[in-house]
């Protein structure tokens, strides 16, 4: 009934914004159901003394006990410290490695497409598979890494990677870097390709050497991309669970227990869901603040 009195012609200019809302609705509902609602539930839970949360039970009385316990708990501060260490180490390593590989495969050479594929590959490997591979590489008895270190003469007896706190942290960090740098690579490569060739020509005529071209043209031009990418990598480390959980389970001696591992453990091992929700809420606040700070540092240049 096109043009009929009661037909709803969403293509009419005066109704075009309706069409927009109609098309948005499914996504909004989905996000509301799987992100916004659980978020409010967990904020609510964090203010209650709840063991196992059940939606069919009445609310418990409001309490700040979870937060009081949290901020006075050494476990919480340890988890914060581990998370911070992991973020500093993994983010900086991912940035350096990602940028370096991007610069490498941005050059023209034979087999460039294959090289680009190889650089991006760790990103395509499913996280759990990658973790299992690394668990074997760092196995104390049969692992590749001990064999390589022994053969090269770095060590004279095998390292027990998962019982030494520092070694376990190193294993977790290495795995995360391997899994995380290709993302920086891919983003940087896209950024590199959008830098006009003329900038480099002009710089060469001006007498800038390769290092100066990197310092004064490539890096500043990439800053917006690197800024956003750093935030995304950071958030990924904040929320990543499977790598640490499968490799070390947060141990030994909580040396690799990040905030997300702690949240999981409190909720599903000790069944203190109110307390776990409080950890989750604090993590969320830290994430938002950290992302804001990082984004502000990236100058908007273009």
């Amino acid at each position: 009934m096109a043009g009929g009195r009661f037909s709803l012609d969403l293509a009419r200019p005066s109704r075009q914004h309706w069409l927009g809302y109609v098309l948005l609705t499914p996504a909004v509902l989905l996000i509301a159901a799987i992100i916004v609602y659980p978020l409010f539930v967990s904020i609510d839970l964090s203010f209650q003394n709840v063991g196992i949360a059940r939606l069919d039970q009445p609310r418990r009385p409001f309490t700040l006990a979870n937060y009081e316990r949290l901020f006075s708990s050494p476990d919480f501060w340890n988890a914060c410290w581990v998370t911070l260490k992991l973020i500093l180490v993994v983010t900086s390593a991912c940035c350096v490695l990602g940028l370096a590989t991007a610069l490498l495969v941005n050059n023209r050479f034979r087999g460039r497409s294959v090289a680009r594929l190889l650089v991006a590959m760790p990103w395509a490997v499913p996280e759990v598979i990658a973790v299992v591979i690394f668990a074997w590489i760092f196995d104390s008895s049969f692992g590749l890494m001990n064999w390589v270190f022994l053969s090269l003469g770095f060590i004279d007896r095998t390292i027990n990677w998962f019982s030494d706190p520092d070694a376990a942290f190193a294993v977790v960090a290495t795995t995360m870097i391997w899994k995380g740098y290709p993302f920086v690579s891919i983003m940087s490569l896209a950024g590199l390709q959008s830098i006009p060739e003329d900038y480099y020509s002009a710089a060469r005529v001006d007498g800038a050497n390769a290092l100066q071209r990197l310092r004064f043209i490539t890096l500043p031009s990439l800053m917006p991309v690197i800024g956003v990418t750093t935030v995304l990598v950071m958030l990924w480390i904040f929320r990543d669970f499977s790598i640490i959980y499968v490799l070390t389970g947060g141990g030994p001696l909580k040396a690799t227990q990040t905030l997300s591992i702690m949240t999981y453990e409190q909720a599903f091992s000790f069944f203190r869901m109110g307390y776990a929700s409080a950890v989750g809420v604090v993590t969320l606040v830290i994430c938002v603040v950290a992302a804001k700070l990082t984004m502000r540092r990236a100058p908007d240049t273009l």
Partner: peptide, 21 residues
Amino acid sequence: LAPGDRDIAMVFQNYALYPHL
């Protein structure tokens, strides 16, 4: 010689001005 050692200056069609400077 490299471009920088030739003591010439060049003006480009798209100016090639660095946006961040």
